[in-house]
């Protein structure tokens, strides 16, 4: 028994301190440096840990994005993933969760046809779009079970996984029929850094690029990939200026704060 794991990763800006071009209402992308979405590091690490748990298992990193996104696949390989694929093409440039998950699902179907996929792992969300939708949407496109907010894969074989889902009020334990898509939380593990051996493997790896036609997608399917889209971006309004609570002693400051909170009916 072995697992065939897919881990989905995204190349995102390393900073969230971005600005908007007022003329276009779009985010200024020039000068931004890209790297693996930090939340994806947990998904990659979990894939590597599953490989360690069940010897003989394999893991493939998958991304959708411009050709430059190939680097994120190599980064995943340097962290212990065996191989990688990039899905690229103008059809998927919209950078919305709907089209990204559609492209990922199409690629996973292709991988699944080559060798049945056991499990697909995702990060919690990306640090650019922040929606956290791609994992669950990919599950929907594949018509596979999907679980978000996974903080532990308690047990797994090639048929069933028992996972812990972090909810607002506690933890759900779920028995999931595989294949399935799981979105992880950062509580699931502590990612390791790339190893020297991994970096060598990453350098040498061949990373195939799949286009829409490689995935057998037709024009009609591709024309329906933006049921919603970002019309424009702006920066949030500044918060109103604050006040300072002064006092000769800590006790005086504490008393003044309580006065203000009571006066404003906040407590």
């Amino acid at each position: 028994m072995s697992l065939n794991i897919v881990v989905c990763v995204k190349n995102t800006p390393t900073t969230t301190n971005v600005s908007v071009d007022p003329a276009t209402g779009k985010i200024k992308s020039s000068g931004l440096v890209y790297a693996m979405n930090p939340f994806d590091e947990y998904a990659v690490e979990e894939a590597v840990r599953l490989k360690e748990r069940i010897p003989g298992s394999t893991a493939t990193a998958l991304t959708v994005g411009p050709d430059s996104s190939e680097s994120v696949v190599r980064d995943a390989i340097s962290r212990g993933i065996d191989a990688g694929v990039i899905v690229s093409g103008p059809e998927f440039d919209g950078d919305n969760a709907y089209s990204a998950s559609f492209a990922l699902a199409a690629a996973i179907k292709k991988l699944n046809a080559e060798k049945p996929v056991t499990i697909v792992l995702f990060g919690k969300n990306t640090n650019d779009g922040n929606s956290g939708m791609v994992g669950a949407e990919t599950a929907a496109w594949l018509d596979w079970p999907g679980v978000v907010s996974v903080k532990k894969i308690d047990s797994i074989d090639d048929k069933i996984a028992v996972v812990w889902r972090m909810m607002e009020d506690g933890t759900d334990v779920l028995k999931v029929t595989l294949p399935a898509c799981l979105s992880t939380t950062k509580e699931i593990n502590e990612p390791r850094l790339p190893s020297l051996k991994g970096k060598m493997a990453a350098k040498k790896a061949a990373v195939p690029k799949w286009t829409a036609s490689d995935l057998g997608l037709n024009a009609a399917q591709l024309s329906e990939l933006a049921p919603s889209l970002v019309a424009k971006c702006s920066t949030p309004p500044a918060r109103p200026a604050g006040m300072k609570v002064e006092g000769a002693s800590a006790a005086e400051k504490a008393k003044k704060l309580v006065d203000i909170l009571i006066e404003r009916k906040l407590i």
Partner: peptide, 23 residues
Amino acid sequence: ATVAGKSLGARLTVKLKAGLAAD
């Protein structure tokens, strides 16, 4: 947009081919 609600929204956007604004 709770854990369950976000998961539901993601599944529905695909099932219904309906646009989604998350969070």
